[in-house]
């Protein structure tokens, strides 16, 4: 082992039973829970304090958001399949599922773009009402997370995929970690959808 080699990239540490990347991503996701938690908490304060609160469905497009929910759930399945295919050594199929995940992520952003532009077209900006302010803040932050996921997954589909030939275990760990992040993005949307659109 050279002095510069990073330890525990695919062999678990004896004390934690985890690779460093796995522990790292979970701690990062814990901090993400608090980030979104703060905004959900803000939502409660704003909603309870408001004299009137609109039903999300009266302002927002529920069919489009339902479509986006289906898209994001599907992308979670293709992401976990990308990992499962690596686990059985099917690299080509892994790439196919990863590409599908990226495609679905773009699909989500396109639908979101249509929603946003319709709102702007009707002069429904964040400054228009408290509801719209928290709607744009929450979905905007979530959208940035989707964008982040696309960047990471595209890297692993492109230049990052070279690692599969040299260090397959490490690459599989990376896909697992990227997957954990992606499922978290899906999980946040699962709560955003009813809170903003249906209640």
């Amino acid at each position: 082992m050279s002095a510069l080699e990073i330890p525990y990239v695919y062999t678990p540490r004896e004390d934690t039973g985890l690779t460093n990347a796995k522990l790292g991503i979970w701690l990062f996701l814990a901090s993400e829970v608090m980030l979104f938690g703060a905004l959900f908490s803000t939502y409660i304060v704003l909603r309870v304090g408001a004299p009137v609160w609109p039903r999300g469905a009266s302002i927002l497009n529920v069919p489009l958001a339902t479509l986006n929910t289906v898209i994001l759930i599907s992308s979670s399945v293709t992401m976990v399949m990308a990992w499962a295919e690596l686990a059985r050594g099917q690299f080509k199929r892994h790439k196919l599922y990863l590409a599908l995940t990226i495609l679905l992520s773009f699909g989500f952003l396109i639908v979101k773009y249509v929603e946003y532009s319709t709102k702007f077209h009707h002069h429904l900006f964040p400054s228009k009402s408290t509801f719209l302010a928290i709607y744009f803040t929450l979905t905007g932050l979530h959208g940035l997370h989707v964008l982040g996921g696309i960047v990471v997954n595209t890297y692993f589909l492109g230049p990052g995929a070279k690692m599969w030939k040299t260090e397959p275990q490490r690459f599989m760990g990376r896909i697992e970690v990227a997957g954990l992040y992606w499922h978290f993005v899906d999980l946040v949307w699962i709560f955003l959808f009813p809170v903003l659109y249906l209640l």
Binding site: V77, G179, H183, F184, D186, I190
Partner: peptide, 9 residues
């Protein structure tokens, strides 16, 4: 959310 966390994650 639990389904995603338990099985996908």
């Amino acid at each position: 959310g639990s389904l995603v966390a338990l099985f996908f994650m």
